[in-house]
Amino acid sequence: MDGRVCRAMARMFQLGDKLSTDLATFGTRAGHGSVTGRLPRTVEVPYDRGVRVEKLGCELDGRQLLADLDFDVGDDALALLGPSGAGKSLMLRCILGLAPARTIVRGALIFADGRRVGLDDVTALARLRGRVLTLLPQAAAASLDPMRRVEAQLRELLRMHGNDGDSPTSLLRLVGLDAELALRHPHALSGGQAQRVALALALACRPAVLLADEPTASLDNLAQAQLLDTLRVTCTARAIRLVLVTHDLALAAGVCRRAIILDAGRLVEAGEIGELVDAPRHPVTRALVAAARRADALWSLGVAKELA
């Protein structure tokens, strides 16, 4: 599968500028076409966990949308923070080899075993997608196949990735869902349930690195807290390196130890979240800290007993 095919599929399914699990996980809706038929059936070993992104740049019609992004996805979960329009989702698309049409992408991914994949090599990136790098999209409900039951969608990915260790039922339990949900169609799921099913689909691929693009943006605070908890626990248990895209510093602090901050396509600050909170240097980081601090007014009201 090369980039042109991907983009043609994206247009065909009218995915707009957001990614779909299908494309990022070799998933279901593409299953009937010839595209997935060409995928290698042998399962590759994820290149020994972590990955380093080196000098990622993205250019459109001479405009530099992303420039000189250097960072490490190591053993700890990494938060990718920044205001709307900073280029967070675009960066994920570049890493997944799904950059928009007419963009020129530069840089490389360096894997833990020393393997190097150029970000302009969409064929090589397509081979990684779903196997080494998997996306958990923002709007999961829109990326599920509306015509097929949850179980069929999970089973297809398990087979495609030669994953004998998991079953649809075990994956649903892992993400905190009732196994009975396997028989439902996506329309019969709540937003929080659909997001969990998307996580189960991503886990079915057994990725080394999970790229989560604001996975809780459409959820209420209760469902958000539950999903983040599941994400943290399962990624730790399965040694999956997590990259969490968000614009909420407090949310990131609950899941990740390190963060990188993006503004206008540039990396403006990076470090441990605790240190960023204590001593933010860049104005964008300061605004994120200030916004998170304003919420503290809630905690200074009364002397409520915290829910354990």
Binding site: A225, D296, G302
Partner: peptide, 19 residues
């Protein structure tokens, strides 16, 4: 918000991400 009584209110309060 300062002294929530109902379990739902407490859960909503506890679910607010905190630095």
């Amino acid at each position: 918000l300062g002294a929530p009584q109902h379990p739902i209110t407490r859960a909503l309060r506890a679910a607010v991400p905190r630095l």
